[in-house]
Write a protein that binds this DNA or RNA. Structure first.
Length: 522
RNA sequence: GGCCCUAUCGUCUAGUGGCCUAGGACGGAGCCCUCUCAAGGCUCAAACCGGGGUUCGAGUCCCCGUAGGGUCACCA
């Protein structure tokens, strides 16, 4: 029997990073066993779902390279893959359950159910429905309806015995049937609820392995009850520990996003990305642009491989505790048996470290390809040769592709560079530290210009030699002196080597920029 | 509150009774390198939740606490 796994997102508009972790494990398991991965859309709750809310989720999966064999947009032999299109099918299943006496029409009003539950709560009893408004016969139904009540269908859970099942992560699980509530499977408006639809879909789509987050562990007995009632085979289960909030064990939630931003590490990663987003005009509202959402990483130039590599280690590890995996290696190594049992909190700094490794592993030409679109989006000239020189000089300084925008000052027209004489003077003072006196900037900068102007070729090494020669002649330190050059040519005091900076800029642009600084001094 | 789950450095984890003086990674600290910023090299700090058992021996098995979490919807 071929392995078939699935991931079933609700179209909420955002692809949640915890969901991706779950999807990844499903995908990995299917790929490892030569099976199929299905992407089904859980849109039973019509009110909450909007069609355009699906696209970002699909885009996210495509970006990550988690392809699906059947499901949304690609179709397949076991469709439809949208729950909203299967109402008749679900209602048929509800009828079957009703016919077998495993479900019943219930006429409790919401406030009556609520009152029962509250009473149970107060008396510290099990919260189990009394079945007081259960209609056992057609006559009961007519009578309740005459009272103006509308019926829903509830599943009639056993009130004794135990439900046993094996879980690849939890191992043997046993729960008392008596603790299981009669849940609604068909609402009074005729639509069905998640648990029913889920069971029917898993059967229709021939899902063999249900791999999902641990919060669904408690749904499992009632689903088993339904599927057995319907005569479906039982799939295998694996309940993954959930992905927790940064620095806590609470389940990660999109709603608490503003709160997560108070976490220092989270904030740091957010701020770094936001600077890039601002450059390229991506709206950076915390509700839509946030480290718990996949799109956040996509927007600023993280790599899918890095994200996936980080994610596979959230709740899973090999015996040798190895960390670097390509997707193919993950497929080879993955096993449900090595999924850990305890929740893991999201560590975005560690993710960042993975991204740094992946970026550093790229050849210059590959980095250039990654980086080009960001320059274009920022409205900067994206000349491949020039970008190559910048990327080469930047060395290991870039982590995400959007980091190229750190070097915006190399791409903008010379007139846009704002020279800061005070900062230049600071470095000048450092250059002459220990000397009898510090000559004025207006005197040193022309000398620096002259030293650098005729250098041939105009490269890191020759520029360095020229600067050092001048430093020796003037009794100054060459290092800080090069900083003066940097400030004059870029308006900034940080970046890769000052000599490389000048060389990348080329002679003409350097001299033009220094001349502008000189003008400002006089 | 009932039911269920979990418990090793700040974080992710390795560990399946002796190889543990508890290992790795991220993060942190220090030093080196150095024109700034990174990167790199070296070094350091940092954990078995508590209590009882079982055993010659327990991070590892059992029990009880404690803590955290999940779930108890006409959400998914």
């Amino acid at each position: 029997m071929t392995v078939r796994t699935r991931f079933a997102p609700s179209p909420t508009g955002y692809l949640h990073i915890g969901g991706v972790r779950t999807a990844l494990f499903n995908w990995l398991y299917a790929r490892k066993h030569g099976g199929q991965f299905i992407l089904r859309i859980d849109d039973t709750d019509q009110g909450r779902n909007q069609p355009e809310a699906l696209q970002p989720i699909l885009d996210g999966f495509r970006w990550l390279g988690l392809d699906w064999d059947e499901g949304a947009e690609v179709g397949g032999p076991h469709g439809p893959y949208y729950q909203s299109e299967k109402l008749d099918r679900y209602q048929e299943a509800v009828r079957q359950l009703l016919d077998k006496g495993l479900a019943y029409w219930d006429y409790a009003r919401p406030e009556e159910t609520k009152a029962e539950m509250e009473a149970a709560e107060k008396e510290k009893r099990l919260k189990i429905y009394s079945r007081r408004w259960m209609a056992e016969t057609a006559a009961d139904r007519t009578r309740f309806e005459a009272e103006g009540r509308t019926g829903s269908v509830k599943v009639k859970m056993p009130r004794e015995g135990v439900c046993k099942f094996y879980d690849h992560v939890r191992k043997d699980v046993e729960v008392q049937w008596a603790g299981e509530q009669d849940i609604v499977i068909q609402r009074s408006d005729g639509t069905v609820t998640y648990n029913l639809a889920n069971v029917v879909d898993d059967y229709d789509m021939k899902i063999t392995h249900v791999i999902r987050a641990e919060e669904h562990l408690s749904n499992t007995p009632r689903q088993i009850f339904m599927l057995e009632g319907l005569g479906y085979p039982r799939p295998e289960y694996a309940h993954l520990p959930f992905v927790a909030e940064p620095g806590s064990k609470n389940k990660l939630s999109k709603r608490k996003i503003p709160q997560y931003l108070k976490n220092a590490d989270f904030k740091k990663i957010y701020d770094h990305a936001k600077a890039i987003a601002d450059h390229i005009g991506v709206p950076a509202a915390p509700e839509s642009f946030n480290p718990v959402l996949v799109d956040f990483y996509k927007q600023v130039g993280y790599f899918p491989a890095a994200l996936l590599n980080y994610l596979v280690l959230v709740g899973w590890a090999t015996a040798d505790n190895r960390e670097d995996f390509t997707l193919a290696e993950m497929v080879r190594e993955f096993s449900l048996e090595r999924v850990v049992q305890n929740p893991a909190s999201l560590d975005v700094k560690k993710l960042f470290a993975f991204q740094a490794r992946y970026m550093q592993a790229l050849a210059v030409a590959e980095k250039v390809e990654q980086v080009l679109p960001f320059l274009v989006r920022a409205g900067l000239p994206a000349d491949r040769d020039f970008v190559t020189r910048v990327v080469e000089a930047a060395g290991p300084r870039m982590t995400v592709a959007g980091d190229i925008l750190e070097y915006e000052y190399l791409f903008v027209p010379d007139e846009q560079i704002r020279f800061d004489a005070a900062v230049a003077t600071k470095h000048l003072a450092a250059a002459f530290k220990g000397a009898a006196s510090v000559p004025p900037l207006a005197e040193v900068l022309p000398k620096l210009r002259a030293a650098v102007a005729g250098v041939e070729p105009f490269t890191h090494d020759t520029l360095k030699i020229a600067t050092e020669a001048l430093a020796t002649a003037e009794g100054a330190k060459p290092g800080p002196l090069s900083q003066v050059l940097r400030v004059a040519a870029t308006g900034r005091e940080v970046g890769f080597s000052a000599y490389d900076t000048l060389a990348v800029l080329s002679r003409d642009r350097c001299l033009a920029r220094i001349d502008r600084a000189l003008q400002q001094l006089s």
